[in-house]
């Protein structure tokens, strides 16, 4: 199996003056071609930062202290961060979390879509317009010609997320980072959007890193899953194995924390405080160990 992306022993910190706060601690992650890989963790686990490493859109204060990110044949690694971006442009794209803040409120949808399309394929405006229309049709938008003329605020949350999915797939990328793409949607729309992502991904053989905190969504759409806490991957494996026989205590307690309509309980059981502190402690010890 070829890898669409391979991250080995990645360490990353945020520099603030002379202090370097570790964010990612020894991440190993191989994404096979055509898989949907779930990246799960509570807020602050480092999911989004890992996504930004892959997209090469790190904030200026972020420093990769060791490890590397290997893209498929010929693509750049992070050893050369000076000529950022360009080589990966079009090969990796992003489906962002919040469709309202990710679209430009003062530009029509058509205009925003063609900006991306023109970067990937410098065609005539007419061709670009037709391509945009076709893309919207592929994400099951009923009146694409009308939507192209509209502004983001005129669309519903589900429609906006579809537009962003169309934009993410528009450059025929090999890899897509989906950063909580359905968190802002209600359950019915969420299911439609998940199905859409899965169908598009199947047809094109795209690899997706699906960042989310919702284990339910992971169970339904992902092939494999990695669980993160304090910048470390605690458990990794096939979705079926991880959900049926979770090996890490943290995975077990996360699964138990989820309210389920089919198993109503008197009280929910959040991840225990001492487990949380224990995990943070492990991360600290890891840092000290690395320094010495």
């Amino acid at each position: 199996m070829t890898h669409a992306l391979s991250i080995s022993d990645l360490h990353l910190g945020i520099r603030n003056g002379n202090i370097l706060t570790p964010i990612l601690r020894g991440i190993n992650l191989d994404l096979s071609e055509g898989e949907i890989h779930g990246l799960v963790g509570e807020s602050g686990a480092g999911k989004t930062m890992l996504g930004r490493v892959i997209l090469d859109i790190l904030p200026p204060a972020a420093v990769i202290t060791s490890g590397q990110v290997k893209y498929p044949a010929g693509a750049s690694t992070h050893s050369a961060r000076n000529n950022r971006g360009n080589q990966n442009r079009g090969r990796i794209s992003l489906i962002p979390q919040d469709p309202m803040t990710s679209l430009n409120p003062v530009k029509r949808i058509g205009k925003q879509m063609s900006e991306i399309l023109k970067l990937a394929h410098p065609n005539s405006s007419h061709q670009t317009h037709q391509r945009a229309e076709q893309l919207l049709r592929e994400v099951k938008i009923k009146k694409p010609e009308q939507v192209l003329q509209q502004y983001p605020h005129q669309l519903s949350g589900g429609m906006r997320q579809r537009v962003l999915i169309a934009m993410a797939f528009s450059t025929e990328p090999k890899l897509i980072i989906a950063d909580e793409p359905t968190t802002a949607l209600d359950v019915s729309v969420q299911r439609q959007v998940l199905r859409l992502i899965r169908d598009l991904q199947k047809n094109r053989g795209t690899t997706i890193l699906f960042v989310t905190h919702d284990l339910g969504v992971v169970a339904k759409i992902c092939d494999r899953v990695s669980l993160m806490h304090s910048g470390m991957i605690l458990e990794q494996g096939d979705v079926a194995d991880v959900f049926r026989t979770p090996s890490h205590r943290y995975t077990q307690s996360l699964l138990e924390a989820i309210p389920r309509y089919d198993r109503p309980r008197e009280k929910l059981t959040p991840v225990a405080e001492d487990l949380q502190t224990e995990l943070i402690q492990t991360a600290r010890e890891y840092d000290q160990h690395r320094q010495t």
Partner: peptide, 23 residues
């Protein structure tokens, strides 16, 4: 029923996305 069915339970199920009851 469709609202209930749309809740993704944390049980791996590849067919869940395929069913389109009531949509």
């Amino acid at each position: 029923q469709s609202l209930i069915d749309a809740v993704p339970l944390p049980e791996p199920d590849g067919n869940w996305l395929k069913t389109t009851i009531g949509e």
